[in-house]
C-alpha cells in the first residue's frame, strides 16, 4: 500500500465550527462533520443555503480553525494556510487594480518566483483558459464569465494538490456555466488535484463529481454520500440525458429535498 492510499489528502473528523455572533452568543455553523477525499477525487458538496458549505471550505483552507474535531491535509493537522491548497471563492476575488496578466501572475509572485517566469507562466495559463489577447485588460473591463476564467487561472497557476471551489460558476448564465464546467474538467484532468466543489446545483454536482456529499440544514452535518460512477471523460451538456444520471439525480434529490424545505421554512418563518 502506498503512502497516499493510507492517508487521504483531505480528512475532517468530527469537525465543529462555532462563530461568535455580534450579540455575544455563539452560533454553531457546522456540527461533527466527517468527510474524506481521496487522491485525485472530485467531491461535490450540496446543501441548503446557510448550512455551512463555505465554512467547511474555510476549515480545509486554514482560513478558519475548527472549534473541535480535526481537519488534516495529507495526514497533518491544518494550522494556517497551506501551499498545496488553491481556493476559488464564492464572491469575485480578483484584484481590481491589477491587469489580467498580473492577476494571474500574483500567486507565483507572492511565492517568490522571478518576475519573468511568473509572467511567462501567466501567459500560458491565460491561453489555457482562453483569455489570450486580454492580458492588459482590467477586471472591470471583462464579462462575468471572463472574470471567472481569470480567477480559475489565478488559482490553478499555483498547481494546487487540493482545489477548493465555492460555487465558482453560480453567478453565470446556464450556457456559460456549462462551458466553464467542461473546461474545468479538462483542466482538472491535466494535474488531477483532489477537489471539493461546493454548489447549489445538483445537476452540476452530479455531472462533475466522483462523489456527492449532501449536508443537512444548518448546523450542517453530513447526511448522505453518493458515489457517482459515470464514465469519464464527461460532457456536461450531454450527460444530463443519460438514464443513469437521471436515476442518480432522483435518489440524491430525495435526500436533499427535505433539507432544502426545512431551510426554506426556517427563513420564511424568520421573515414572518
Amino acid at each position: 500500500m502506498t503512502q497516499s492510499e493510507a492517508t487521504p489528502p483531505i480528512e475532517l473528523r468530527g469537525a465543529t465550527k462555532r462563530f461568535r455572533t455580534p450579540d455575544g452568543s455563539t452560533y454553531t455553523a457546522l456540527r461533527d462533520i466527517d468527510l474524506t477525499v481521496a487522491p485525485g477525487e472530485f467531491c461535490a458538496v450540496v446543501g441548503p443555503t446557510g448550512c455551512g458549505k463555505s465554512t467547511t471550505l474555510s476549515l480545509i483552507s486554514g482560513l478558519e480553525e475548527a472549534s473541535t474535531g480535526t481537519v488534516t491535509i495529507d495526514g497533518r493537522p491544518v494550522s494556517g494556510i497551506d501551499r498545496r491548497v488553491g481556493f476559488m471563492f464564492q464572491q469575485d476575488a480578483v484584484f481590481p487594480w491589477k491587469s489580467v496578466l498580473t492577476n494571474v501572475a500574483a500567486g507565483p509572485l507572492f511565492r517568490g518566483a522571478a518576475k519573468r517566469e511568473a509572467i511567462d507562466r501567466s501567459r500560458d495559463w491565460l491561453r489555457r483558459v482562453g483569455l489570450s489577447g486580454f492580458e492588459d485588460h482590467y477586471p472591470h473591463q471583462l464579462s462575468g464569465g471572463m472574470r471567472k476564467r481569470v480567477a480559475l487561472a489565478q488559482t490553478l497557476i499555483n498547481e494546487p494538490r487540493i482545489l477548493l471551489m465555492d460555487e465558482p460558476f453560480s453567478a453565470l448564465d446556464v450556457q456559460t456555466r456549462q462551458i466553464m464546467s467542461d473546461e474545468l474538467l479538462d483542466l482538472w484532468e491535466l494535474t488531477r488535484p483532489s477537489v471539493v466543489f461546493v454548489t447549489h446545483d445538483l445537476e452540476e454536482a452530479i455531472a462533475l463529481a466522483d462523489k456527492v456529499v449532501v449536508l443537512t440544514v444548518g448546523p450542517g452535518r453530513v447526511k448522505d454520500v453518493f458515489p457517482i460512477e459515470l464514465p469519464r471523460p464527461r460532457r456536461v451538456q450531454e450527460i444530463k440525458f443519460e438514464p443513469r444520471f437521471v436515476a442518480l439525480y432522483e435518489r440524491i434529490w430525495n435526500s436533499l429535498r427535505d433539507e432544502v424545505r426545512a431551510a426554506y421554512s426556517r427563513t420564511a418563518g424568520e421573515a414572518a
Binding site: 482560513l63 491548497v85 481556493f87 471563492f89 469575485d92 484584484f95 489565478q154
Partner: peptide
C-alpha cells in the same frame, strides 16, 4: 475576500499590506 484570496495565493502579511 481579497485579503483571503491573497493569503491563499501565498502572500505574506507584509505583501498583503503592500499589494
Amino acid at each position: 475576500n481579497l485579503i483571503a484570496n491573497a493569503r491563499i495565493l501565498g502572500a505574506s502579511p507584509w505583501k498583503v499590506t503592500t499589494q
